[in-house]
Simulated scan of single mutants.
Amino acid sequence: MKTNLIQIETTNADDFKNEIINGVITALKHFEEHSKNNSEIILSREEAAKLLSISLVTLWDLTRKDKIPAFRIGNKVRYKKSDVLNALTQKNQF
């Protein structure tokens, strides 16, 4: 595990605050870019159900009703992470 060492000597409170804010903004942008790149991850039924915090039976019911798109690879059912997340956001719209 890499540890970063920060040494504070001659800085005022405003500069220190701005440095922290800029670090947080940079980390959030990196997280956003990383999550966009990972949206095409293929999930198993178990992973999709865990992501949505639902049972496998509920996931199967939503898949059967075409609320969450799925596809088969051989005899296995798989889900695209982006499709699962899109189905979740569509369901939460009032």
Rank of each mutant, 00 (worst) to 15 (best):
M1K: 11
M1S: 14
M1A: 11
K2I: 15
K2D: 13
K2V: 15
K2H: 14
T3W: 10
N4I: 15
L5Q: 15
I6N: 10
Q7T: 15
I8P: 09
I8G: 11
E9S: 13
E9P: 02
T10R: 13
T10M: 12
T11E: 12
N12W: 00
N12S: 11
N12T: 12
A13V: 12
A13C: 12
A13L: 15
A13K: 14
A13D: 12
D14K: 15
D14S: 14
D14L: 15
D14N: 14
D14P: 01
N18P: 00
E19R: 09
E19T: 15
E19W: 04
I20E: 12
I20T: 15
I20D: 11
I21K: 13
I21C: 10
N22Y: 10
N22D: 15
G23E: 15
G23V: 14
G23I: 13
I25N: 11
I25V: 15
T26I: 13
T26L: 10
A27H: 06
L28N: 13
L28V: 12
H30P: 00
F31G: 03
E32K: 10
E33Q: 12
E33S: 13
H34L: 13
H34D: 13
S35R: 08
K36Q: 09
N37D: 14
N38C: 09
S39I: 13
E40V: 04
E40C: 08
I41E: 07
I41G: 03
S44C: 04
S44R: 02
R45C: 05
E46F: 02
E47G: 02
A48N: 02
A48M: 04
A48E: 01
A49K: 00
K50A: 05
L51W: 01
L52H: 04
L52Y: 05
S53N: 08
S53D: 02
S53G: 04
I54Q: 03
I54N: 02
I54R: 04
I54K: 00
S55P: 06
S55E: 07
V57S: 08
V57I: 10
T58E: 11
T58H: 07
L59T: 03
L59W: 03
W60Q: 07
D61W: 07
L62N: 01
L62A: 01
L62M: 11
T63I: 03
R64N: 09
K65N: 10
A70H: 07
F71M: 03
R72D: 08
I73W: 04
I73P: 01
N75W: 07
N75Y: 08
N75C: 06
N75A: 11
K76S: 10
R78S: 04
Y79L: 05
Y79M: 01
K81I: 03
K81N: 02
S82W: 01
S82H: 05
S82Y: 06
S82K: 11
D83Q: 08
L85N: 05
N86Y: 01
N86H: 02
N86C: 00
N86P: 01
T89V: 06
Q90K: 08
Q90H: 05
K91P: 00
N92Q: 09
N92I: 04
Q93E: 04
Q93D: 02
F94P: 08
